[in-house]
């Protein structure tokens, strides 16, 4: 296959294909930023999926809209708006909706109310601003191919801080997530842990959505973690699979988009979805096989109702 002058083409020589991708500084930065995001979003998302706070994560991602439009209105850097709104959103969900004693449906309804309010504020900011919000498309879909060295450095710093904070909270947070009554009896501050985690989630979302966009950060938060948890119930392998899947999805998506006319975000999201689908199917097949193998006596009995 010959290289055409109009653009890069992909061939069967993988080494050549990869080195072709790595020739451009913007592609190297995109791969590095995508990798950093995949690791941070994967780990924070793993806890989010386990805590069943996917909807809270989605709401925090939506905070980018009032964040960006508010920043444009005030004439300050968009990043300030992202961090301010994601932080405020985390506190609002934590105090208003996330209280552990509330029922599951009450919590998700309250989270939804917070999201609606945030979007309304974003709408107000846009109409007050008057002009066309040029960044709107990059708010939604990000600009992975335009990551500067400074941005990459900042992102890495935030990601390292988020991962260290998550590691420090890991065991009490896990305890409070699956078994809040017992954790509270042990003297763990369950409510404070819940708000701390939402703040951490907000930080991760704010940092990543500047670069990857709202849609993409959410795909990276949910899909790798949910896939890994479908595949194994062991915590450490599950975390490892999450990070590996996140990196695979981001790098494969970027690589394909380099040779294609379609945007990277599209491929990354589609591959995330495909990975999740495959993991679910695999887990179903696994469960069926173990059911067929298990003697009737050791089968799980009828389940009791779920109280959350």
């Amino acid at each position: 296959m010959r290289t055409e002058p109009t653009g890069p083409t992909i061939g069967w020589d993988v080494v050549r294909d990869v080195s072709q991708v790595l020739e451009y500084h913007f592609m190297v930065n995109a791969l590095l930023a995508g990798g950093v995001v995949a690791v941070m979003a994967g780990l924070v998302g793993w806890m989010m999926v386990l805590r069943r706070e996917t909807f809270a994560g989605h709401t925090l991602a939506m905070m980018a809209f009032p964040g960006a439009s508010g920043a444009a209105l005030l004439g300050v850097p968009a990043a300030w708006g992202y961090f301010a709104f994601c932080g405020a959103g985390a506190l609002a969900i934590g105090r208003f909706a996330g209280a552990e004693r509330r029922s599951w449906s009450e919590r998700s309804a309250n989270t939804g109310a917070v999201q609606a309010l945030a979007l309304a504020m974003g709408f107000l900011f846009v109409s007050l601003y008057g002009g066309v919000l040029g960044d709107l498309e990059s708010v939604l879909f990000g600009n992975l191919l335009g990551v500067s060295d400074t941005q990459l450095l900042g992102l890495t710093g935030v990601a390292a801080a988020a991962v260290v904070a998550l590691a420090a909270l890991a065991r009490p947070l896990l305890f409070a997530s699956v078994d809040s009554d017992a954790a509270a009896a042990r003297g763990l501050p369950v409510q404070a842990l819940s708000i701390s985690f939402l703040a951490l989630l907000g930080l991760a979302v704010a940092a990543t959505s500047q670069i990857t966009g709202v849609m993409l950060v959410f795909a990276l938060l949910v899909a790798p973690a949910a896939s890994a948890q479908a595949l194994t119930a062991r915590p450490l392998p599950s975390l490892g699979i999450t990070v590996a899947l996140g990196l695979l999805v981001v790098w494969l998506g970027l690589g394909i988009s380099y040779y294609s006319v379609y945007p990277a975000g599209f491929f990354i999201t589609v591959i995330s979805f495909a990975v999740y689908l495959l993991a679910r199917l695999f887990a179903m097949a696994l469960a069926r096989r173990s059911r067929e193998r298990a003697p009737a006596a050791s089968r799980p009995g009828p389940r009791r109702g779920v109280i959350s």
């Binding site: 386990l50 069943r52 890991a170 065991r171 017992a182 779920v306």
Partner: peptide, 23 residues
């Protein structure tokens, strides 16, 4: 919850070290 993806032994382990900070 039937979808809780932790093993029984992990739940027991949390009784031992679930209130220790750090990893």
């Amino acid at each position: 919850d039937p979808s809780t993806r932790l093993r029984g032994v992990d739940i027991v382990q949390l009784g031992l070290d679930g209130d220790r900070w750090g990893l």
